[in-house]
Nucleic acid binder design. Sequence first.
DNA 1: CGGAACGTTGAGCATAATCAACGACTGTGG
DNA 2: CCACAGTCGTTGATTATGCTCAACGTTCCG
Lengths: 251, 251
Amino acid sequence: MVSQTALSFVRDNADKSSVGPPERCVHCKVRETSLCSSMSNRDLAALSGLGRTRRILAGQVINWPGDASTSCANIVSGALKLTATLADGREQIVGLLFQGDFVGQLFAEEMSITVVALTDTDLCSYPRAGFELVLDTFPKLERLLLKRTISSLNDARVRMLTLGRKNALERVAGFVFELAQRIGQADGKGNLDVLLPISRGEIADFLGLTIETVSRQMTRLKAAAIIDFARGERGCKVLDVNQLEMIVNPI
Amino acid sequence: MVSQTALSFVRDNADKSSVGPPERCVHCKVRETSLCSSMSNRDLAALSGLGRTRRILAGQVINWPGDASTSCANIVSGALKLTATLADGREQIVGLLFQGDFVGQLFAEEMSITVVALTDTDLCSYPRAGFELVLDTFPKLERLLLKRTISSLNDARVRMLTLGRKNALERVAGFVFELAQRIGQADGKGNLDVLLPISRGEIADFLGLTIETVSRQMTRLKAAAIIDFARGERGCKVLDVNQLEMIVNPI
DNA sequence: CGGAACGTTGAGCATAATCAACGACTGTGG
DNA sequence: CCACAGTCGTTGATTATGCTCAACGTTCCG
């Protein structure tokens, strides 16, 4: 494993001369969901001048632990995982980031976490130092970053409960349930179609289990007619949301 | 369990008339370690007018999950635990807070976490809405809060690795090791005295284990002459830091 | 066609939970 | 002063849960 400086390869799409509302930002698909949503078109010029778009291929490592973090970015499309790893290779996914999320280690020297692309991902990347300066100038930007960081901290704490205290069935059921709530699509027959965005192995790394255990619990939920799925498909159908919630959140 | 509004009992020590550098803040023992360290004596008046000191007895619940969070506070002395709980009583400690730390849920409506005093604790408490307004006015205060929130998030993520992937011995050894690093006192014979700030039961809740398992691993470390402790004592002596670190962080 | 990646399933095992008993210490009340 | 209950920590026996190791089917791609 050869370490590479984080995002050091970002060079293209300079926009140095823009002064007014920058065209490529105004039409950006995460204009209203990313941190940029806290800034007016006019103010956005300050960020636009710093930002460079960059495509990351699935599986690519963006940031190695121990590297100085010299960049940060908004996710324009795609998905990233944040992982923590032990010396012998045991791995824990400590966060998943999607379209509109912000990635990067601000105001901290050392990064103990690896960032890897789950799918091909488009980033709008900024030099860290420059981004921190922009934060000084635009209180609304800093406020939104603070809010999102607080929200991530709350998520992390809730997930500690899962990792520390829930059994395998509760973990898997909870994972499916949460996805169903967030990205489930009604199929017209009263069921919810859920596209699991990650492989069984990654679900295992996310839940602190092994692949085999995740598979067995999925089979168990299928046998109980709570969910349904076919071999080789990443998706699954939630047949009985109530029973699923019962497992996750018993009365 | 009767829910009580967070910190609603805070009434004493008003300081309404102060305009200059507030006396009780200047001499506060966490003046230089709490969020207040980001503010000049002059600016501190804005917070001082809002703050009320409040003593919480060991075991008292400060905040129930589901309550609206109407207060926040700096910890002047003592210690708090943040816990997440399942319906059947399984509990996970998701954070420990000490002197100088900030406690409270800003910019988020629902709190899913319980705050309980581990020891008798003195708080300097603020109405949440007022504190948020002060944040608007003092960018340095907001910046320090952001930095500390980012730091807490990093801690939480590292702890997810422990809860998801480490075995019982690694968890307990890691707990002792970290405390030794942070609050260990050299005893003059080349060993480190560590005062464990919480009971076995709370260590178990912190590490996602049972009391018995924590006890067994402590005994195991003692049998290996890595640590030493006597029955009934909260403290322990680290006899072999290297071996301890070896368990935590094998090469 | 062959190999790789992914998911499922089974058998056996190891780890930590559970259940139970006990000792040390504390505080209470007679 | 002692009896007593209560809390805390330790230890032992047993069990259950999830891990490890192994085999196999499917899909995808060269």
